[in-house]
């Protein structure tokens, strides 16, 4: 149960990251491939302040957010006038810098030894895990409501216009660079806040948590779910993270030898899925006009179908592995 709660909380963190990426890439066309950098910065900074300086969670969070806002504002200033391929490379570079500094600055981060223990922010009840989950849930729901309204708002319309044709928007009196800079700063900072909340969730931090596959998992979720739809990121995370990190890890009948392969199979399938989506359905599952009712029916169907497919596939593969192992054992015995 505790593990399920942990997984569900992590799922919400991913939903939050996908929501922010939706604003950056889906609405504004900023291809931020350094998601893990912003998230990891928040996570580690909050962790370091709490563990090394015994700061309270709230203080650490505020300090970290202010600093990250300044950093992303500066980074945005440098890169947001560049063309998209360059932005993508620069944001990857940023996340690589964050990951490297976490390893080198041992005095603060403890390097590869790991940093812990980070406590939950609210410790009024016994059930601090549940409370933390509720905080995340409230955060994600709030963000989702804001996103849905953003799509219908003047600001949202302007963002889409900037994505489509920035020069034309500027010629109609819109300060496009400032819109992008603000949105980037805000969303990147929120990615850091989600990181800070993850610090308490993980309790013990190591540099190998700051890996590109996190950025990738968020991207595949958004692209699969539908990058231009307000609900796209959330649906995408439900499908990817929901199946692989919650359903299979908690319920699927996998033998322990096989279980170690699951993360690799997952990333392999993510890659294949991303290629397939971009080739055959570039808009993702939801295009920008998909109605909420269709989403509900469609996603229930999709989740059911994919769970069936994955479970069947996995049990087949697992059986194959077991029989292979049995045969190898027989050979050994012989």
């Amino acid at each position: 149960m505790a593990y399920l709660l942990f997984s569900l909380s992590l799922l919400l963190v991913y939903v939050g990251l996908a929501q922010m990426l939706h604003v950056q890439f889906g609405l504004l066309g900023i291809p931020n491939f350094g998601v893990v950098g912003f998230w990891g910065f928040g996570m580690y900074f909050v962790g370091v302040l709490q563990v090394q300086l015994s700061m309270s969670f709230i203080d650490a969070m505020v300090l970290s957010s202010v600093l990250l806002a300044v950093i992303s504002y500066g980074l945005g200033h440098l890169i947001l006038r560049l063309e998209r391929q360059a932005i993508l490379c620069a944001t990857i570079a940023f996340s690589a810098i964050v990951a490297l500094l976490i390893v080198t600055e041992k005095w603060a981060t403890m390097g590869v030894v790991g940093l812990g223990t980070i406590r939950y922010p609210l410790r009024v009840f016994e059930a601090e895990e549940i409370l933390h989950f509720v905080i995340l849930l409230a955060f994600v729901i709030g963000a989702q409501i804001y996103l849905m309204r953003l799509h219908k708002s003047r600001l949202g319309r302007l963002m889409v216009a900037i994505r489509d044709n920035e020069e034309l928007a500027a010629s109609l009196g819109k300060d496009t660079f400032r819109v992008k800079l603000r949105a980037f700063t805000i969303t990147a900072t929120i990615m850091g806040i989600l990181g800070g909340l993850s610090a308490a969730l993980n309790q013990f931090l190591t540099p190998n948590m700051i890996v590109p596959s996190i950025t990738f998992a968020v991207w595949i979720s958004l692209v699969l779910g539908g990058k231009e739809h307000a609900l796209g990121g959330m649906i995408g995370v439900f499908i990817t993270f929901g199946i692989f990190d919650i359903f299979i890890e908690t319920y699927a009948p996998v033998s322990p030898e096989f279980a170690v392969l699951v993360p690799n199979i997952k990333l392999f399938l993510y890659g294949a899925l991303l290629v397939a989506v971009l080739l055959y359905r570039p808009t993702g599952l939801l295009d920008r006009d998909t109605e909420p009712r269709d989403i509900l029916i469609g996603s229930l169907g999709a989740i059911a179908a994919s769970i069936t497919a994955v479970v069947t596939g996995l049990s087949w593969i697992a059986k194959g592995f077991e029989s292979l192992a049995a045969r190898a054992k027989k050979d050994d015995d012989a």
């Binding site: 319309r157 044709n165 109609l172």
Partner: peptide, 13 residues
């Protein structure tokens, strides 16, 4: 043009 804006939205913008 803005390919994802309708005629009305484009004018509203």
């Amino acid at each position: 043009g803005f390919e994802s804006l309708t005629i009305r939205d484009s004018l509203r913008l």
